Lab assay of single mutants.
Amino acid sequence: MAAGGDHGSPDSYRSPLASRYASPEMCFVFSDRYKFRTWRQLWLWLAEAEQTLGLPITDEQIQEMKSNLENIDFKMAAEEEKRLRHDVMAHVHTFGHCCPKAAGIIHLGATSCYVGDNTDLIILRNALDLLLPKLARVISRLADFAKERASLPTLGFTHFQPAQLTTVGKRCCLWIQDLCMDLQNLKRVRDDLRFRGVKGTTGTQASFLQLFEGDDHKVEQLDKMVTEKAGFKRAFIITGQTYTRKVDIEVLSVLASLGASVHKICTDIRLLANLKEMEEPFEKQQIGSSAMPYKRNPMRSERCCSLARHLMTLVMDPLQTASVQWFERTLDDSANRRICLAEAFLTADTILNTLQNISEGLVVYPKVIERRIRQELPFMATENIIMAMVKAGGSRQDCHEKIRVLSQQAASVVKQEGGDNDLIERIQVDAYFSPIHSQLDHLLDPSSFTGRASQQVQRFLEEEVYPLLKPYESVMKVKAELCL
């Protein structure tokens, strides 16, 4: 049975990233139509530049190519590739079939990587351009969430054990800070992308030097003109047959890092959902379990974690691919890159769409948070109580021993009897502590235990987050809708 299948058929496997999760716009960027249309555009740009620099290419040939950029006979191309065992030459023939007058000058002087690699770089750039505003929107939604809850005390956790208090907004800023680093890295790697350009079979530009009869300047002009037509500021000066596969490492490393950030955020949300302090959106008709109707599973956060793990592992592909590119190139890269580049971007696209949807509907339960604080705060307040007693004339050592005994009794009630923490009640009825009984409410005010959390939130948002989001103001209103 021949390899390949009808990918629109229910009898043929289709990647869930495309069929179930990723956005239509990201799927289109990695589609065959987008790819092969870009090949034709690159052939047109090459012909236009070659004509401008004096090669015998007519206006009629150029116009014929322009008129057929979208006229792609995919069936013919597939048949040609089956016959020739070469995808680029299959599309040269297919393009030439609908451009008979231009057929002889299509791909003039070029090698397969002229269309293959340059198209990949265009796709990487455009895919990054799709991700950047999506990530900015996630940051914006979380920034709104953090600002609104900047002063809401909550129990902090280290080692997932109760620690000092923080605020809900401050905790959210930990998430935002990681995503801001990801946004900066995505922008950097996007701006650092260079075009492969017009380089020939081993990167020496020998074929173009021959076409222009040894004119170095025209060869350099050709490279520059096509690079500018493709919208790049610069091209690699040095290439082998391909652009260095280190570029793929750079791009997928940034995406993998984004995956790590999203995994951490969504894990926190899942843990908070278990504590009943916070939940992701839950639709009115949504079913959490087929057997347990009360369940409210954090399905979206779980999906993000599941896909983020996949995204983090994909960076190993370009690392290994770059390491086995012998001399000017081997074909070890080809099949692998067809999979890992598309999957990385479709996965990143999915987790950003999902995280935006989550961040637009996060639900906080202040009463649950308050109750958990009441359970733990008495123990945390013991040092403040000791200091207040010393100020009232008591002995630190005597007070410490009193607190120690009462704390152990209260802990026994919590752990052995399943009761509430009654340390404060014990202190309130103990005559030894009568000098500070009137101060206990103040000493137990949760806001006095959150330090500068709310001020940190305000400063972080104003100095770091809002300036970073400013270039994306025009796209901030787009909502994230999930079908599944």
Rank of each mutant, 00 (worst) to 15 (best):
V364M: 04
A291T: 05
E473K: 15
N118M: 03
G116R: 05
M380F: 15
N185W: 14
D178F: 07
V29W: 14
R171M: 03
R309F: 10
G418H: 01
A411S: 09
I436V: 08
A273D: 05
T158Q: 02
Q456C: 14
S253Q: 12
L183C: 10
T202V: 06
L152E: 06
E370F: 14
V189R: 10
P366K: 05
N118K: 00
T321F: 04
D398A: 12
G288I: 06
A150D: 09
Q221C: 11
G54N: 06
F379Q: 01
E250L: 11
I237Q: 13
A49S: 08
F282C: 13
Q205G: 05
I339M: 04
R149Q: 14
A90K: 01
M299I: 03
A342F: 15
L377A: 03
D192G: 14
M387P: 03
A256T: 06
V189F: 10
D268C: 13
S253N: 10
D398M: 10
K147W: 06
E48W: 01
K264N: 04
P435R: 11
A102W: 00
V364H: 14
F30W: 11
R300S: 15
R234A: 09
D441P: 15
N68M: 05
I339N: 11
I269M: 07
S257W: 09
C304S: 06
H310A: 13
V198Y: 02
Y472K: 03
L377H: 02
V324P: 02
T267F: 15
V251T: 15
K218M: 06
T119W: 11
Q416M: 12
S140W: 05
V168Q: 05
F145I: 04
M89V: 07
R190E: 09
V262M: 10
G418W: 06
L311G: 02
L314E: 08
I287K: 01
M476S: 15
T321L: 06
E464S: 10
G418K: 00
G214Y: 04
R452H: 11
L377R: 03
D445E: 13
F236E: 09
Q397Y: 06
V168T: 06
I237N: 10
S448Q: 15
T111F: 02
R40C: 06
S395G: 08
M225K: 04
L271P: 01
V251M: 03
K134T: 12
W175P: 00
T313R: 05
I436W: 04
M476C: 11
M278G: 04
R337K: 09
V429I: 07
Q241E: 13
I105P: 05
E481Y: 15
D191C: 14
Q41G: 12
K218W: 14
I351K: 00
K82G: 10
L128A: 13
G5H: 04
Y13K: 08
R85G: 02
E360L: 12
R371L: 01
R196M: 09
R188C: 05
R338S: 00
C266K: 05
E280N: 00
T244M: 08
A2L: 13
P24M: 09
T201D: 10
V88G: 06
T58P: 06
Q41I: 15
D332E: 01
G361R: 14
F208N: 05
L222G: 01
S448H: 12
C304E: 08
T330I: 05
C173W: 03
S261T: 10
D215C: 12
L461C: 15
G5N: 09
L183D: 04
L272Y: 02
I106P: 01
Q177P: 01
R300V: 15
K218G: 12
